[in-house]
Design a protein around this nucleic acid. Structure first.
Lengths: 216, 216
DNA sequence: CGCTGAGTTGACAAGATTCAAGGGCCGTGG
DNA sequence: CCACGGCCCTTGAATCTTGTCAACTCAGCG
């Protein structure tokens, strides 16, 4: 699986600290991280490595866990009503995937890893048992889900150039908000994948990136 | 406030039954609807009428309640990073607004009523007190939020004609899924509002609708 | 060392925006 | 009661952007 190279954007590749992960407060409530520990995670069987191209989970299959990305980038792919497939979003370390599990019991997208990645897997069974009892877990879970319901900035809007700029800004801001290197992005996805996300052709993405690079 | 007239699409205007509302299971858990009652709502101070153009809530203000639409259409408007305003979505009876309240404590969009409408208001205070205790309420709330996290079909994609078709299909399906008349839509929003949602110009929306109408 | 796949670039065509004009409906004020 | 103005919608024509098609480079790999 070859990945692009010629842009001047570079990505952060170090694993993220637990403190910057969206699951952090939930892990704490569940006792998976000792309360006094500020960031580093206790030796856990829950975080795993995975190769590029592999799937964290698959649309339609019974949902068994939430997934938190520790390192790498993950794309969500969903089936369109016309029988095609479309990239819905890219996700960076610290973000949580699979939140639709509680409502449906199945995942709605494929979650596909773009680079060799690390992630934590939090089985729903652990959450399910206690959410009906411990109030603070339910509260944290509700908070996490509620944040995810806010409409996200729609990247596939405006002219080609704006879309690409918005895409880069969005990615950069999400990396920066988690303390990752975001001044020089290395795009871990192909032009084709960007084009898919932004509802453009690959040539238009290429041209827009070239233009931006030429203008420094 | 004038509304369009010349399309052959017609809307349902009767208030929705509680049974078809997304808040239904939560209202039941909270005892707001007697368990044996199948649909009709008990005499409640919670549902209200509101005039066209009024706001259910406003972006940035402290969130005080969830809102369930009973009759009419509501648009969500959010501020863009460039200082403009953009229509994020339209909502039909049975849908619940303000779910981002738990995570942020404030609303992220303006919710503006398009026609004379009815809605139910469920104060967060009622939910907040109990979600930490009663497990079944937390469970229902988590289910509701989780369903809302699933990525929605992105309407502002493809060519002008496809966008309009997808918009109409999406609206129709959401009405139909709640038992409302959906074979003949009356669009309660203006061309300008549709154009805003679909990231098009008003002229392109008009032409697409004309084309579709001419082809029956 | 040629193959393959990703990326870039150019030329042209298709599609959308922009600009301009006109029609219909409604409320207002003479 | 009617004329007027405003707003929404429609339509046409010119212009611009993007999609499409094709050719080419470059890097990695057998």
């Amino acid at each position: 699986m070859r990945r692009p190279s010629t842009t001047r954007f570079h990505d952060a590749t170090s694993p993220i600290a637990c403190a910057a992960c969206d699951l952090n407060s939930i892990c704490r409530v569940m006792g998976l991280i000792p309360p006094e520990s500020p960031g580093p995670r206790l030796s856990s069987g829950m975080h795993r490595s995975i190769r590029a191209g592999a799937m964290l989970y698959q649309a339609g299959l019974p949902a068994s866990a939430l997934f938190a990305i520790r390192r790498g980038t993950v794309k969500l792919v969903s089936a369109t009503s016309e029988g095609g497939r479309r990239i819905v979003s890219f996700h960076v370390p610290g973000e949580v995937l699979g939140l639709e599990a509680f409502g449906r019991g199945t995942y709605v997208c494929d979650a596909i890893v773009l680079e060799p990645a690390q992630y934590c897997e939090l089985p729903l069974a652990l959450l399910g048992d206690r959410s009906s009892r411990a109030g603070s877990l339910a509260t944290e879970l509700i908070k996490l889900l509620s944040l995810a319901t806010a409409p996200r900035r729609d990247l596939a809007r405006g002219k080609a150039r704006e879309r690409v700029v918005n895409f880069l800004l969005d990615l950069s801001q999400r990396l920066a908000s988690r303390g990752l290197e975001a001044t020089e992005l290395k795009l871990s996805m192909s032009r084709l994948e960007v084009a898919d996300l932004l509802d453009m052709r690959i040539e238009a993405v290429s041209r827009a990136l070239q233009d931006l690079n030429r203008e420094q």
